[in-house]
Amino acid sequence: MQNKKLNIAFFGSSLVSAYWNGAATYYRGIVRALHNRGHQVTFYEPDAYQRQENRDIPDPEYAKVVVYPATQEAVYQMLEDAASADVVVKASGVGVFDELLEAEVLKLQSQNCLVIFWDVDAPATLDRVENDPADPFRAHVPQYDLILTYGGGDPVINAYAKLVAKKCVPIYNALDTATHYPVAPEERFQCDLAFLGNRLPDREARVEQFFLDVATKLPEQQFIIGGSGWGDKPMSANVNYIGHVYTKEHNAFNCTPKAVLNISRESMARYGFSPATRVFEAAGASACIITDYWEGIDFFFEPETEILVAKDGAEVAELLQGLTPERAKAIGEAAYKKVLAQHTYGHRADELEQLLLTTPRTATAAPSSADAFVS
């Protein structure tokens, strides 16, 4: 089994579009790394939320992308298409018929097919299930052969253990060196501090505290905010809102400002050990990163030398006021060295491949597609 090349069916939000889809670059890095090891990935994504109209990339060479209509009939067709895979992954937050997919992929389990739930927003999933004893996902957790998560460390592992998961393993975000790297700065992204992130309910208050309030207090400094949904948000005159930033623009966005800001969503910060993909993207572009505090930062980067940490907006302002271009450059270069040495998707895929090859399969006879998928 150790040298087996796997046929992997992956149900996720989108591989080709990062529009309202923060997991896109995570998926790309993971899938590319699996492809580089000889595994074949088919990525099934629904035509939803205008993602196909806002693609960042064409269909990549490292995966077969199947875009299906956002209908129940199409979901069953995709499940039938995936029935011959060695590994089937259902990611959280597909956005269309999630409950249906979470139940139906389990019918593909067999001694030849590993079925995985990959939680790219474990804090939100776990909070939801904890607050609703009738949530149908609760009953599915023990049935999956493996739970993978975007991060979360022991708090997430222990929470899934309480739900009787067979095994839960975090596969952390990382740097995709093929897409994120240092480039020449661009004048349109010139500023003292830049933040990139979509407007989401459990992030908004923290963006106000760590970014918008800081801009108000430092009128002599320039700020840029990118991401979807901020257009009607009140901002001081020294903040430039630039809207959705396409993946191809991320390197210049990260390279150009004196510093870039990472702001975790409230749930991610509460669980800890959940660095956003953008932290590794920024480090891969040799950016000086200021991050809000969360437990586990030093598991990835050394505070003060490879990353700057702020517990509130006042500390962000203090860091900015004392940050010289020379120190910012040194911190960015140190982060770049660390991420290349320890935190690429190649490093993550080493662990992931072992899990895919060695995790026990559920030894039950697979139902025929005709029996399994009657819509």
Rank of each mutant, 00 (worst) to 15 (best):
N173H: 07
N173V: 08
A174F: 04
A174W: 07
L175D: 06
D176Y: 10
T177V: 15
T177Y: 12
A178F: 14
P182W: 01
V183T: 06
Q190Y: 14
Q190D: 12
Q190V: 11
A194G: 05
F195T: 10
F195K: 05
R199Y: 03
L200C: 05
P201Y: 11
R203W: 01
R203T: 09
E204Q: 12
E204C: 13
A205D: 13
L212T: 06
L212V: 00
D213W: 04
A215T: 01
A215H: 09
T216M: 06
L218Y: 07
P219A: 04
E220V: 03
Q222L: 13
I224S: 02
I225A: 02
G226N: 03
G227M: 03
S228E: 15
W230I: 05
G231Q: 15
P234G: 06
P234I: 03
P234K: 01
M235L: 00
M235Y: 09
S236L: 08
N238I: 08
V239L: 02
N240P: 11
N240C: 10
Y241H: 00
I242Y: 07
H244N: 14
H244R: 13
V245F: 01
T247N: 13
T247F: 13
K248D: 13
K248H: 15
H250P: 05
H250L: 12
N251H: 00
A252D: 03
F253P: 00
F253N: 00
C255S: 08
T256K: 02
P257T: 02
A259P: 05
A259K: 02
N262W: 08
S264V: 08
E266L: 14
M268S: 15
A269V: 07
A269Q: 09
A269E: 11
A269D: 13
R270M: 12
Y271F: 12
G272P: 10
S274D: 13
A276G: 14
T277G: 13
T277Y: 03
E281V: 00
G284Q: 07
S286P: 12
S286M: 14
A287L: 06
A287H: 03
T291L: 00
D292Y: 07
Y293S: 10
Y293L: 13
Y293E: 14
W294P: 12
W294I: 11
G296Y: 03
I297E: 02
F299C: 14
F299I: 10
F299P: 08
F300C: 00
F300Y: 06
F301N: 04
E304A: 13
T305H: 11
E306P: 08
E306Y: 02
I307A: 01
L308W: 07
L308N: 03
V309K: 04
D312R: 09
G313Y: 01
G313R: 09
G313C: 09
